[in-house]
Amino acid sequence: MSEIIAGNLLSPVVLFFVLGIFAALIKSDLKFPAALSDSLSIYLLIAIGIKGGIELSHYSIQSVMGPIMGALFLGAVIPFITLVWMRVMKMDLHNSIGLAATYGSISIVTYGAAISFLEKSGTSYEGFMNALVVLMESPAILISLFLLKILEKNNHSPAVSSHSMGLVPASLKLVDKEVIRESLFGKSILLLVGSLFIGLMLGDEAVPMVKPLFFDLYNSVLILFLLNMGLIAGARLPEVRKHGIKLLLFGIVSPIIFGSLGVITGSMVGLSLGGTMLMGVLAGSASYIAAPAALKTSVPEANPSIYLGLSLGVTFPFNLIIGIPLYYELAKWIQ
């Protein structure tokens, strides 16, 4: 277990993120051109989507329908719970949405550490869990952006009650065609979900063409992306102090709650011990790749130092040290 923890904490993607924060704190002149920053986000969204679609094409829809429904359920309910949680803590709307998308989505690196944990313990798991990794990324982002559009209209509507705290729309008319269009067809969701369907339709036939760019170079491009996100987060890091211990506790308590919900869901949809534990890991983790890539373009008002600082600086190491074995023991108890 110590090797898993050390291997992930000392991985290049994490270290380059830390380098970006350090560069920002010492006020280095290191900067990414805006066009390059947008290009890296587009690349990651396409790569994550198409790889998941290709993996999903290996299975019949009947064999994965139950787990898919479980994954979609978690991807929908976790961002809503997070949003309510943040609004009760009096956090502003855009940063609440940022955390809702980040904690509703998943961490691929945490998932990889969980796979290593299962392999070392000799516990088997369903192969299609790799596809659920992608399926649990896009619903949370979609739901979060949808809620943002509704609540932005809600905040500007004269019909809103002063007691609503911006949590519930005053009228179903707020859910109009424009809200749905912007939520479903914003470029982040369009690229992520569209790429997944392309990979699903083409299957292994797409591998020879997409492998050199979207498979082989993925980790290298990810390093550049997290270096840039480190620069952005480091520049705005002092803003996190305004929220203090409340956010720190959220970063520790929320993976326990969401991970437990994931384990219960995995057991209910009939997954094995290993699959149930992985569902808990996915639910309890927080994204620092897909969600930040989407938020950077769709919700630029959200502070990266909050959603990235919590997901990568608090929840990520917590899951590696405590969360993964905790979800495994919980899965054993439920099974």
Rank of each mutant, 00 (worst) to 15 (best):
I4C: 11
V13R: 04
F16D: 08
F22N: 07
A23Q: 08
A23F: 11
L25K: 15
A35M: 08
L36N: 10
I42V: 04
I46V: 07
I46N: 00
A47G: 01
I48E: 02
G52W: 06
I61R: 03
I61T: 12
M65R: 00
P67M: 06
I68N: 05
R87D: 08
L93W: 05
G98F: 12
L99M: 11
A100Q: 05
I108Y: 15
Y111K: 02
I115H: 04
S116C: 09
F117S: 05
Y125S: 01
A131D: 07
L147G: 07
P158R: 02
A159P: 02
V160Q: 15
M165K: 14
M165W: 15
K173A: 14
V175I: 15
D176H: 01
L190Y: 11
L191W: 13
F197H: 00
I198V: 14
G203Q: 04
P208I: 04
I223P: 10
M229N: 12
G230I: 04
G230Q: 06
L231D: 13
A233Y: 12
G234R: 12
A235S: 14
E239V: 13
L248K: 08
L249C: 10
S254Q: 01
P255A: 01
F258P: 02
S260D: 00
T265V: 08
S267M: 07
M268N: 13
V269T: 01
T276A: 06
A291Y: 02
E301I: 08
N303C: 11
I306N: 11
L310Y: 01
S311F: 02
L312E: 05
V314A: 01
V314N: 00
F318V: 07
L320C: 15
I322W: 01
G323S: 02
